[in-house]
């Protein structure tokens, strides 16, 4: 029985589930998680990278040659593409995060009401859903803007 019990639990693959109808929030949940992990990885890398401004792990103060060395590694097409991607995911994560904070405090999720068939849950047709689209659009615009700055 235990084998069957565990077999049917969805596990991590349940993070992404496009089969649930009318559920943009599920996509937002998945990408919020993924972008969060991506941003954390970038931030850790960025802290390591900027430490070369002071000569790296064993530096003692602002060091021009160390910083030039660092820029020679990060300032190229690949580095700029990573930066554009970071702007994309940071913008999405930030705006969607604000949506989640507000929603999780009961703001913009609608309120209980008398329900009639066909049922349309108020939480899934409230303002919060529009903000997911705002997050997507602004993330793309921010990435385009970053691209124009880095490659313009």
């Amino acid at each position: 029985m235990e084998k069957g019990r565990e077999r049917n639990r969805r596990g991590i693959r349940g993070w992404f589930d496009p089969t649930v109808p009318n559920n943009l929030e599920r996509w937002a949940y998945f990408f919020q998680r993924l972008t969060g992990l991506g941003i954390l990885a970038y931030v850790i890398g960025h802290i390591g990278d900027t430490s070369f401004f002071v000569g790296g792990p064993f530096g003692t103060g602002p060091n021009q040659s160390s910083w030039s060395f660092d820029l020679s590694i990060t300032e190229n097409v690949v580095g700029h593409l990573i930066l554009i991607f970071v702007v994309l995911i940071v913008t999405f994560h930030g705006i969607n995060g604000i949506r989640l904070i507000l929603a999780e405090l009961g703001i913009m999720v609608g309120k209980p009401s008398k329900i009639e068939y066909p049922y349309r849950p108020s939480s899934l047709r409230s303002v919060q859903r529009h903000i997911i689209w705002v997050a997507i659009v602004l993330a793309v615009l921010a990435a385009i803007w970053a691209g124009s700055i880095l490659f313009g």
Binding site: P21, E25, V109, P112, I115, R120, S123, L124
Partner: peptide
């Protein structure tokens, strides 16, 4: 994390996601 799937599949219009967010306050 307000994935909202519970409310999307509820056959009775209960909207559990709404209840959870309101309770969280």
């Amino acid at each position: 994390h307000f994935a909202g799937s519970c409310s999307a599949v509820c056959p009775k219009g209960v909207d559990p996601a709404l209840g959870i967010q309101l309770l969280r306050r």
